[in-house]
Structure formats: C-alpha cells, structure tokens
Nucleic acid binder design. Structure first.
Length: 420
DNA sequence: TCTGGGGTCCTAGGACCC
DNA sequence: TCTGGGGTCCTAGGACCC
C-alpha cells in the first residue's frame, strides 16, 4: 500500500501559518515576475480564479472581492516543505519526495493496521506541528493513492483521508472520477480518450490495454494496470536530477549584450550551485534566449545552443565561461529579449569520473575554491561572494511587489511577538 | 504595461555496427 | 521477378507531472 500526502493549497497555507488573519479569506500567490496566479485558497477557487491565470486579466475580480495577493516566496515554501518532509518521515522508513508539496509513503509494513486511522494521525501531526492542512490518499498503487487523494481533498465526507483498499469499493469510486483527473492523463490524451468513449477512471480501468498501448503508449497501458490494483510504478527514493535548468523572464526587456550576459551568468551560477549540491558533474550545457512571444508587434527571435565542456565539471568558472561563449554565438542585436535560461545537461555522478591524461583536473574543477565559495554563501547568504560578471544590480530581475518575509530562513525576517 | 519555472519518460527514425 | 537479419546509440519531438 502507498499513501500520497498532499499539502492543500500549499503556498497559500504557508503564508497563513505566519499570518492567521488570512484564514477564511480569498488569497492567491503569484508566479515569478508577479505574472500568473499559481496558488489559490479555497475561497479564491470558488471566486473563479484558475491556475495559471495572468494577473493583469484578473485585477478587477481581485479588487471586487478584496483578494489578498502575494508574490511567491520560495525561501519560505522551500523551508516549510523541508519541515513537512521531516515530520512525514516519522510515518514510514520508505518514502518518495514527489514535489514541493507532495510525498508518497510506502505502507507495506503497516498493512495490518487501520490505515484510515493512520492517515488521520498523519494529517493531525502536520496540522499540529506546522499548521499546514494536508490530504491523505491511500491505495494499493500510486495511481490509486492519487485518486484516493482526490476524494480526500474534494469530498468533505472523507474529512481529508480516503483509502481505496478493496477492489469492489474502488471500482464504484472510479466511476465518479472524470478521465482527465487520472494521474498520467493530460489534456491531449483525455480528449483522445473521450473520443473512444472512455470518460471516467473506471472506463480506463476496463479498457483493452493492448489497444491503449498501440494508440497511446506503454505509459498509459501501465496506468490501466495501476487502476486495476497492480502496482507498476515503484517508490523512487531521491534520484539526482538529470537536467538542471535555471531560467527567468525579465521584468523589463533587455536589449544590450552586457545586461543579457549578466542575467545568463546569474542563471548559470545558480545552476552550478544546484549541480554541486547534488554531487554531480555536467558534461555540457544549453543556453537559450527569446523575445516576448505574447507581443505581436515586435520582431520575434528565439535561439538556443548546446556546448560541451572540455571535461565534465561542476566548476562555476568553467560554466560561466561556456555560457558566455554560447551567448555570444546566439546573441542578435536590435532584439528585445524577454527571457533567458541555462540548462546543465549530460549530468553524471561525481563519484564515477574518468581521469584525463591531458587536462589538468585541478584547474578544471577547482574543488577547494568552489567549496569555500559555497560555504561562505551558505553561511552569510546567497551571492555574498560571487563572480564579477554576475554584476550587482540585477536590473533584469522581475517584479516581486508583495513578497512576505522569509520568516524561517533569514534572521532579520524572524517573526516578533509582542506580549500585551 | 502586464502572460512562470521547473522536471520526467517514451517513441520514432536515422545513422551506425557486424 | 528477385535485394538478410540482427543489433546499438542518439536525437527531436511529444506527451505527461508539479
């Protein structure tokens, strides 16, 4: 058995932990650049705010209902996520961190227990420990645990905890789940499935898996088995990333090379930090730049380039050098750039590196220097020490007008409580 | 004026090997 | 008229996830 524990409206819930005045009010959290709505409280969902709505299209509705708006605060959400994970680990030795607000628990060892009761304990633990509301879905496969979570979250009768244990009960519930809510079925496939008269999770569970494999892929055929109760998708403990991407849209369009280079250098630096953090090397990197594709009048341009490093590396200097080279090759004058990014690719573990006879490894991967830089930045804050090419003004950075304090990760933001 | 930022896996087809 | 039978690796593109 698996449990899927999902934090409800996670970003909004994080804001509410430190500001109880937000309880019962419509609250939304915005994406980077304050561009889109990416998290909504239940009250905001009822008002009709949709995931991904551009903010500027919803200004009127926000004003009408006095909706509270926040920029995203990943210092806070990331740290709260780590705390949730710490507490959830108490409930099973086997787990998978699936996303910033979701975790699977392996419950093989607890199958004789009352799992509903266990689910309630989990929910209670997170509520008391962190004031984060969670939903718990339990099932014999990950896909069924996901669907159980759908009920736990959306049907008040379950009060946040639902199990799909016995097959007959499971099948009845599957009939009420629209096909597009099934884990692994997105927009394209749900449209195509509906044409085949497969409208619910139940219909998919009954479908001919050979036909599905032919017309879709082995992935969806696997989903059928999972819906029927045969577990195909294992619990994955932490796997290092195979790609590391850092990209941003700019607050203002960038025209000149120097500013664009500064932005790209910052992204590459961040990517290199992530790479070292997971103890890997990258063999190559990709750099991309693009104009604002929403703008119908400006000249459009978008390009990317992949470059190999002379030898696999986790060294910021090499990565910056390569990023700059690549940018020079794809940069075009007279264009208004709106977004850029870097991606480290061909990532390997730093434990399995072949030495090179002809390249001086100490020069390529100046490990001591990187360790010192990382340690200083860890202790005194991001970018305390940095490469000059990254600049210091961050003119490219976007709007973050309504960001809450980083209550749990920055000393000067720590919450102060006054006694009356 | 204003439209996010990450990831994964699978498949088909081409180039190559013997 | 007729033109083998295996393989591997790589890449781009398309689907999905949060």
């Amino acid at each position: 058995m698996f449990a899927l524990v999902d934090c409800n409206n996670f970003y909004v819930s994080c804001e509410r932990v430190f500001n109880p005045l937000l309880d019962n009010k419509p609250v939304i959290v915005l994406s980077n650049n304050d561009g889109c709505i990416i998290a909504r409280s239940n009250e905001a969902k009822i008002l009709g705010f949709k995931m991904g709505d551009p903010l500027f299209q919803r200004k009127e509705l926000i004003r009408q209902h006095g909706v509270v708006v926040y920029s995203s605060n990943y210092h806070l959400y990331g740290d709260m996520s780590r705390r949730v994970i710490t507490l959830l680990k108490e409930f099973s030795p086997r787990y998978e961190i699936y996303s910033i607000d979701e975790m699977f628990l392996g419950l093989k060892e607890f199958e004789q227990w009352d799992l509903i009761e266990y689910g309630r304990k989990i929910k209670e633990r997170i509520a008391i420990g962190l004031k984060i509301p969670v939903s718990v879905g339990i099932g014999p496969t990950k896909t069924l645990a996901k669907l159980a979570n759908f009920y736990a979250k959306n049907d008040p009768a379950y009060a946040g905890v639902c199990t799909l244990e016995e097959p007959p009960k499971t099948l009845m519930l599957l009939k009420q789940i629209p096909i597009e809510k099934v884990w692994g079925v997105g927009r394209q496939w749900s449209d195509k499935l509906k044409q085949l008269d497969i409208l619910s999770a139940y219909d998919l569970a009954q479908a001919d898996s050979a036909m599905i494999k032919r017309k879709f892929s082995v992935v969806l055929a696997r989903t059928i088995l999972e819906l029927q109760g045969t577990s195909c998708i294992k619990l994955e403990s932490v796997m290092p990333r195979k790609n590391i991407m850092v990209s941003r849209s700019f607050g203002q369009p960038i025209i000149d090379f120097i500013h664009l280079r500064e932005a790209v250098a910052n992204f590459a630096t961040r990517a290199a930090e992530k790479l070292r953090n997971q103890k890997s090397y990258a063999c190559a990197m990709m750099i991309f730049i693009r104009t604002n594709s929403f703008n119908k009048t400006d000249k459009q341009y978008s390009n990317s380039i992949c470059l190999k490093f002379p030898k696999e590396t986790d060294n910021t200097m090499w990565i910056l050098k390569t990023a700059t080279q690549g940018l020079k090759l794809i940069f075009r004058k007279g264009v208004k750039y709106k977004k850029a990014g870097t991606m480290l690719i061909d990532i390997i573990s730093n434990q399995t590196v072949q030495a090179d006879l002809f390249i001086d490894d100490t020069k390529m991967n100046n490990k001591k220097l990187m360790d010192v830089i990382d340690a200083i930045n860890e202790k005194y804050g991001k970018d305390t020490i940095r490469f000059a090419i990254c600049g210091c003004k961050k003119t490219w950075s976007g709007r973050q007008q309504k960001v809450s304090p980083a209550y749990t990760t920055r000393w000067r933001d720590i919450l102060v409580v006054f006694a009356k």
